[in-house]
Each structure stands twice: as structure tokens, then as C-alpha cells.
Design a protein around this nucleic acid. Structure first.
Lengths: 264, 264
DNA sequence: ACATTAACTGCCACATATTGCAACATCAAA
DNA sequence: TTTGATGTTGCAATATGTGGCAGTTAATGT
């Protein structure tokens, strides 16, 4: 019988392996049938791939597919934080705004860390961050290039800041930025604790194609002293619960879109 | 589409190499067939191009094409467990060379991480490092200022490297530096795996008041391809077991002092 | 400008690797 | 136990890799 028609462009073996590992870290498990269809190869080929990766100790084979060994270690660091569910929802919604191939800036903070963890399923991203934990986490996700911004480390944030950070940041062409913040003030603006932080975030709004703030609901009532420059030019604010109507109204006047994320 | 993507039917060799690398960094992998058709040259020619670029260490060849270089090395988390006792001894001895108030450079690697952990008792240090884990660990130790060097993150090392790293590094006045290495060769020199690594370490020897290599005994017999510039100007080599007499002799001829650390 | 040299390229033959197919063994759930 | 899906293995087909060789092209020196 004549062999099946060969597709002109076929994924190279290592490409498949990367994708398999990426799906694993995103979904926790993969099935042979699903992968075979996705790559348009036979199931045997997929099984051979899985066997190979299993021999390298990078996954475990189960009947019907494969599963990862370490049950999401990253989630651990999040669970210790408060409002973990809300942050996860924000992370998922934020990751949904990202397209393959983009250059992404991730600010420091626990909410942006949740965004980082939700991006495991995406391809070919260039990540630019000043956060040690985000860099450490994302550098192990296949197909992501991580650029760490250098500078003095702030122990509270576990992130770099200062002259070097600002300087190098400006050299990136950033498609989308996710920024943290100190509070969502009653007049519909995101505000910050420190002068340096507000300045850095304002700068990033100007640099990035689109800039989103990610804030969980614990930041709603609060007041912090510094407004963020260029706030009206931000693309949106992603939150995990709907704020008071007055706040929503005020925010809509300012410009940025309000995105309320829910768990599924 | 990018305006760069149009090329004459036939391009000179260096032009092809540029385009290949461009596609590689954009797509993660390239196939021989696809490139041959695009440049309108034979597959052999493309393979020769890839071989050349591979010899320069700029990509990795796989069956059917080439992929971005990600040598599937044993993860750092695995390596750190090997010879833990020896590394701890080295760390303690190395920390003993540091005085309060110094500016300390710490290279990436598992042995230098042990040095970082052993420095907990010291005060008023300024730490300069490219390693994410070292920065994350030391930033929580009271009385230490940590400066993270930025750059592209190498997943295997969990550390920054590249242009930005070298550039910023040079701005520090470093009192003492602790460097890793790939191997301690039989002729009494420390050698390295990669061009970039050797260059960065050689640069640091020149910059630091005193530079010490820290190498555990598993690195003794090995051979790696690149010598480290300025090695004779290093202050010493800290190890956890006495190497063969011939190696000791060779090392003493080269200059650096040999320091054998023991667990007490 | 000319000649010489070195490098590049394509073609060929042969070695190797990857993949799909088919037959058979195993597993898991009803 | 039955049944459908999944895993395993040998084999053949196709794609890819390698080295030698000859023709061509670019680079260099005179």
C-alpha cells in the first residue's frame, strides 16, 4: 500500500520533546492519542518519545500517556501566600492575554508570580523580569528565554531594582507587561508604596505595547502614597473580584479596562 | 511580516548563516529541507553550514535539522547533591578567607552555592553574583547587600550570562572572588566547558583583588576544552581532597596556591 | 589583467536513523 | 470473561547523514 502522504513541514524530534514537556508542566499529564494527533505522527512514535524522556527521568509513563513526577512544586510557593485561589485565577486570565512569540515583562510580586506559573503552556516567549523567583521558575520551562534584569536585590521583594534595572529595561521591545501595585485606590487608580517602584512601573507602561496591572482583592480598600505615572495609558487591570461600583466607575473614567477573573 | 524575510534566490554563505541563526532564535528549530528550499541550495550545503555553526557552539544539530542549544544536562538540583560533604568543607574554608566589609564576587555553580551558605556568619558584605539561587539565598541574610548581575538565564546553571553580565561586572571593585570551573586538568590548570564561561572567569580574575577557584574532587581527573585566561594570576584553588602529587607540582608551578579543605 | 590557489558547491554512492505498519500481547473497565 | 483500547516488537520504506570527487566560484598575489 502506498505510504501516507508526507507532510512537507514536519516537527523535528526535539521540538516534539519540548512540546511534550511543556504540556506536562502545564497540564500535569498528556495522552498518547492526543499527542499523536497534534503532531500528526503515529502513536508508536509518541511512545518512543515518551520512553526516551522517561529514560532521562523527565517524566513517568502511565497507561495511555505520561505524567510528571513532581506534583507542581511551583504551586507550593504560592499556597503559602494568602488568597492563593484569587491569584491563580488572575494568573490564568493574564496568561490568556499572551500570544506565542511575545516579549513579556513580569514585575516582581506574588501575583505576577502566579501569572508566570500560568504561562507554562505557551511557546517561544521571551521573558524579561527583575524577580529572582520568576526567573528561577520560568528558566526551566522549555521554549522560554528568560532575561534577568540586574541590580541591587530588595530582600522583601526578592527582586532587583535601581539604576541598572531601569537602564537595561529600556532596551527591550516589550509586547505585554504585567505589573503589580500597592493598592487600588477609591478613585480608580493603582498606587504604590515607594517612589522607585512607582517610577519603574510608570516607565514600563510607556515602554510596553500593552501594560496590565494584576491586583488581588486584598488590595482594594487600601491607600498607598504614590500615584503611578502614565497610569491612564495602561491597557487594563486584572482582578479576582468585582470592586465596589463607585470604584469601577472611577476606573472606567481613567482609561484602563477592568478584567475580572474567575476560577473556571 | 518582517521586511527582513525576503532574500535573493541565492545568498552568500555568511548571509545564510545569519538567516539560519535568526530563524533559530525565532522558531527554536530549523529543518535542513526547509532551509535548502529557501536558499535554493543542496541539502549538503545546508548541513555543512549547520556543522560549521555547531562547531562554533551556536546551535545544536539534531536529526533533520538543528535546534537551539540546550544540552540536556543533569539538572542543577541533581548536581548539588553530589559530594555534598566535600562541598561543605570547601565552603567553610573559602568563607574563612573573607573579612567583614569586603566586596565578594560569587560565580554560579553548586560549589560556589556552598560557599554562599557558609558565609552566613559574616557581616557587612557586598555580594555580587550572577547566580539566581545564590542571590535568593543571601538576600535574606542580615547585613548583606546583594547585587544581581543581569543577563540571559542559562537554565543549566540557573545563572545569568552574556553581554550585560560582563559589562556590569566590570564596574565593581571586588575584593575577593570565588569561581567555579569545569575541571582541574592534569597540567595543573582549571579549564572550562564553554568559551563564554572561560572568558567571564578570566575577566573576573583580572578584576578582583584575589580570585580563588573552588573545585570539589569530582573535577580532578576530567578534561574540558577551554583554558581560563589569566589563570596564573589567580590567588588559589580550594579543593576538598589532595590531588595526585604530579598535579600538585604542576599547579605550584603555575602560581595559584593550593588549599585543601577538610571536614572537622 | 592574469594566473594561481583556496574555498564552496553539487552529485553520487553508501551508511544510518526515524517512522509507520501489522501482528500479537496486555491492560482496564463493564 | 469479554471487549475495546493500549503497549510491544520485527520489519520494510523513506528520510537523513557522511565522505569522496569534480566542477565552479571567489579571493589573492603578481
Amino acid at each position: 500500500m502506498s505510504p501516507v502522504s508526507r507532510l512537507p513541514a514536519r516537527a523535528l524530534a526535539p521540538r516534539r520533546h519540548d512540546e511534550i514537556l511543556r504540556r506536562l508542566s502545564a497540564q500535569g499529564s498528556v495522552s498518547v492519542a492526543e499527542l499523536a494527533e497534534f503532531f500528526d505522527v503515529s502513536r508508536e512514535t509518541i511512545r518512543r518519545d515518551l520512553k526516551l524522556l522517561s529514560d532521562q527521568g523527565r517524566l513517568g509513563i502511565v497507561h495511555g500517556g505520561a505524567a510528571r513526577f513532581e506534583p507542581s512544586e511551583p504551586a507550593m510557593s504560592l499556597r503559602s501566600q494568602e488568597n492563593a485561589g484569587g491569584k491563580a485565577a488572575i494568573g490564568k486570565a493574564a496568561a490568556g492575554l499572551v500570544r506565542d512569540g511575545m516579549v513579556v515583562f513580569l514585575d516582581s510580586g506574588t501575583t505576577t508570580l502566579a501569572v508566570a506559573q500560568a504561562m507554562a503552556g505557551l511557546h517561544d516567549l521571551t521573558i524579561c523580569t527583575a524577580s529572582l523567583k520568576i526567573a528561577l521558575h520560568l528558566c526551566h520551562v522549555p521554549g522560554m528565554r528568560v532575561h534577568m534584569l540586574g541590580g541591587e536585590i530588595d530582600p522583601g521583594e526578592e527582586a532587583a531594582s535601581g539604576i541598572d534595572t531601569l537602564e537595561v529595561m529600556a532596551r527591550f521591545r516589550v509586547d505585554i507587561a504585567f505589573l503589580g501595585g500597592g493598592a487600588l485606590s477609591p478613585d480608580g487608580e493603582v498606587t504604590d508604596f515607594t517612589r522607585a517602584g512607582a517610577e519603574q512601573r510608570g516607565r514600563m507602561i510607556a515602554l510596553a505595547g500593552k501594560a496590565y496591572f494584576v491586583l488581588d482583592s486584598s488590595k482594594f480598600g487600601k491607600l498607598t502614597p504614590l500615584r503611578i505615572p502614565n497610569f491612564d495609558r495602561a491597557a487594563g487591570v486584572v482582578v479576582d473580584a468585582s470592586p465596589e461600583p463607585a470604584l469601577v466607575e472611577a476606573l472606567s473614567q481613567n482609561g484602563p479596562e477592568l478584567i475580572v477573573a474567575t476560577l473556571m
